[in-house]
Amino acid sequence: MCNGRKMRMKSPISIATLESQTKGKIRWKFDFRSYTLIIALVFIAVIFSVLTDGEFVSSRNLSNLFMQMSVISILAIGMTLVIIAGHIDLSVGSVVGLTGGIAAILQVWYGWGTVSVIVVAIVAGVLIGLWQGWWVAYRGVPAFIVTLGGMLVFRGILIGISNGETVAPLDNSFEAIGNSYLPYVIGYILAAVSIILLFLSLGRNRKKRKQLGLTLNSKINDYGKTAVYSLCIFVLVYMLNRYYGVPIPMLIVVLLALVFVFIAVKTPFGRYIYAIGGNIEAAALSGINIKRVVLAVFILMGALSAVAGIILTSRLNAATVSAGEMYELDAIAACVIGGTSLMGGRGNIVGAIIGALIMASIDNGMSMMNIETFWQYIVKGLILIVAVWTDISSKSKAS
């Protein structure tokens, strides 16, 4: 009885404390897990900077690094949606090669203009995605089998239509897509606009949360993080402008990331993808048209693969039969490293892009150190295994 009275006396105090914490502002805090990827990226940059006498973080190398990561980043954006939906796409590397090859063949052999070949390449990517999505969504064939077959089929088509030859060179206008830079002034203007939008978005979100009666982080926490992000944007643009400017492929990645983050987070379609990957039976019972959503996901993956193929072909100024080989594994690795669960239902596009940057940084740093290629494969493979193990372990602990 005495214990019961003590319990009853303590409970109002604890409830009042909880209410005051809910209504009040949360103090500044640092979520280590949320920033693990960024910490890992900084750690990698520091190590390679020391080992290369600072050359790794030079303006020239940073520009090359963002050029190199652009293709995998675009594939990782689409692959994130595919994996969240509970599927996989092993054909993206072959689709990159085929769509880039189609663009090059039409331009070099048949004299088509740049705009026309870009449109045809993207349409080809959409049709490929439609074809594979139809088999997965409406015929019930596992995505692993469909896309594994597609990997072979599309590579074979590329070899057939190109006669096994390298198709080059392309027009200057096409080559500029993957090899040009923004003027310095425009780069700074975009950086300033991005910083302003970050603060406006933060203010709007805080106002909305306050109106809904939700908890608010302290201003030091929110505005401090936004200030750090703004400083990073400015420093990055400054470093890139010390070379030739912000690379156009990097700008394309940022624009696509913004579009697909909005789709994934702010639209019903994005929520449907997460619902299907999390629990397909519950998604079906809630009225989601699973077949249509899965088909749309594969169509988007095909379109993004075509964009990546265009950028790769433009960068190389040629289409080869080996273009895009093993890119599907790099894209999947970037997604998993970025926190996307291979079990489906969990993942984010920003994390996948950071994962692609980590993979590209490892490749770039080891190449600068003249480390043999086989070590790059070994290191990336081990990183992928550890990332999957971490995902499985975290899910086991949560359950």
Results as ranks from 00 to 15, higher is better:
Leu240Gln: 12
Arg271Leu: 13
Ile288Gly: 01
Ile273His: 12
Met250Thr: 06
Arg242His: 15
Gly270Ile: 10
Tyr244Lys: 14
Leu285Trp: 10
Cys232Phe: 15
Ile280Arg: 13
Ser286Lys: 02
Ala257Gly: 00
Ile280Tyr: 05
Val237Ala: 03
Thr226Val: 13
Val228Tyr: 06
Ala227His: 04
Ile273Glu: 12
Pro249Glu: 07
Val246Trp: 03
Pro247Trp: 06
Ser230Val: 04
Ile276Met: 12
Thr267Asn: 05
Val237His: 04
Leu251Gly: 08
Val265Ile: 12
Lys225Trp: 13
Phe260Gly: 03
Ala282Arg: 05
Leu240Trp: 13
Ile248His: 05
Lys291Trp: 03
Met239Gln: 14
Thr226Ile: 14
Asn279Phe: 02
Ile290Lys: 13
Val246Glu: 04
Leu251Trp: 04
Ile233Asn: 12
Leu236Cys: 08
Tyr243Thr: 03
Asn241Met: 07
Tyr238Gln: 14
Val259Phe: 01
Val261Trp: 00
Tyr243Val: 03
Val246Ser: 04
Asn241Cys: 11
Leu231Ile: 13
Gly245Gln: 02
Ile288Cys: 01
Ala284Pro: 03
Leu258Phe: 06
Cys232Pro: 02
Phe234Arg: 10
Gly270Thr: 14
Ala282Ile: 07
Val235Pro: 05
Val265Thr: 15
Phe234Leu: 15
Gly270Asp: 13
Ile290His: 12
Ser230Glu: 05
Leu231Arg: 02
Ile273Thr: 09
Ala284Met: 11
Ser230Asn: 04
Leu251Gln: 03
Leu256Asp: 01
Asn289Ala: 09
Ala257Asn: 00
Ile233Thr: 15
Ile263Asn: 08
Ala264Trp: 00
Tyr272Ala: 13
Ala227Gly: 15
Ile280Trp: 07
Ser230Ile: 03
Gly277Tyr: 10
Tyr243Asn: 12
Val261His: 01
Val259Ile: 04
Gly245Asn: 02
Leu251Tyr: 04
Ile248Tyr: 11
Asn279Gln: 03
Ala284Gln: 15
Thr226Asn: 09
Lys291Val: 01
Tyr243Ala: 08
Ala257Tyr: 00
Phe262Asn: 03
Leu240Ala: 12
Tyr243Pro: 04
Lys266Gln: 14
Ile263Met: 12
Phe269Asp: 09
Lys266Val: 06
Asn241His: 07
Pro268Leu: 07
Ile233Tyr: 10
Gly278Lys: 09
Leu251Lys: 02
Ala282Gly: 11
Ile280Glu: 15
Arg271Ala: 04
Leu240Arg: 09
Ala283Ile: 06
Phe262Gly: 05
Asn241Gly: 10
